[in-house]
Amino acid sequence: MFYPMFDPTFLILIPAVALGMWAQMRVQSTYARYSAVWARKGVTAEMVAERLLSMFGLRVPVERVPGNLSDHYDPRSKVLRLSDSVWGNYSIAAIGVAAHEVGHAVQDLEGYSPLRIRNSIVPVVNIGSMAALPLFFIGFLFRSGVMMDLGILFFLGVVGFHLVTLPVEFDASRRALRLLADTGYLAPDEIRGAKAVLDAAAWTYVAATVMALSQLFRLFLLRGVIGGRDD
């Protein structure tokens, strides 16, 4: 007998959960390591962000937001936000994170296709992420194939969002490292530290994608259980 909250298909999610925990620990430890290493250039992360943005003629405000590693570029309001842990920080780690967000702003400026796709599907994905699993498991409980299929359809949008996020994040990191090297804000040996931080952060996106794919596979398995039953 399968129950939506207590069934063997949960085992499918265990590797993804383990990968996610490892990725979070890695990004935290790597950031902590390189946040203790000040860049020799002697400029703060928000200064670097502002100067890099000005190189592209981008009049994007750089704002401070509460939190730890809550940094992001908002393509709707055209604002780059740096967290408390990055703002005012002279470290290799903070400068790498700030440059990564500048990479997103430059993607927006250039009309980078994966970013445009991701931005366009955000409203649908927001609805789908809230509705997908409730719809599916209500359908599972009442043996409604239509509701389960609708839940899977919504969840496919969530998976698509995660898949398109990967090239967006990888490309932003690539742009950041190149900008930091070309401008000299980080020396070659310091670039290696910034790359370690951004590579660790990238694993969190990989882990989220693996989790979404694992969950999708689980939903298909559960759908097959209902589909194989006689009403």
Results as ranks from 00 to 15, higher is better:
66 P>N: 10
117 I>F: 15
42 G>H: 05
142 F>T: 13
57 G>R: 01
105 A>K: 02
78 K>Q: 14
17 V>Q: 10
89 N>I: 05
21 M>C: 02
77 S>P: 01
61 P>E: 02
116 R>L: 15
121 I>H: 02
83 S>Y: 08
87 W>N: 01
48 V>C: 03
18 A>R: 07
28 Q>N: 14
145 G>N: 10
31 Y>T: 04
30 T>W: 04
122 V>N: 10
37 V>S: 03
21 M>L: 15
129 S>A: 14
102 V>E: 00
63 E>Q: 13
147 M>N: 01
24 Q>A: 14
138 I>E: 03
82 L>V: 09
136 F>T: 03
129 S>D: 03
17 V>H: 07
99 A>G: 13
69 L>F: 06
83 S>Q: 08
61 P>V: 04
142 F>H: 09
91 S>H: 04
62 V>S: 03
70 S>Y: 10
41 K>V: 13
76 R>C: 04
50 E>K: 12
108 D>S: 12
41 K>G: 05
148 M>D: 07
30 T>K: 05
102 V>F: 00
27 V>E: 10
17 V>I: 14
139 G>H: 04
86 V>I: 15
75 P>S: 05
107 Q>V: 09
148 M>R: 07
83 S>A: 15
101 E>K: 06
32 A>I: 00
103 G>L: 08
140 F>D: 09
49 A>G: 03
110 E>I: 08
143 R>I: 09
55 M>Y: 00
105 A>Q: 01
140 F>S: 08
18 A>L: 15
126 N>C: 00
80 L>E: 06
46 E>C: 05
138 I>P: 00
126 N>F: 02
87 W>E: 01
118 R>P: 00
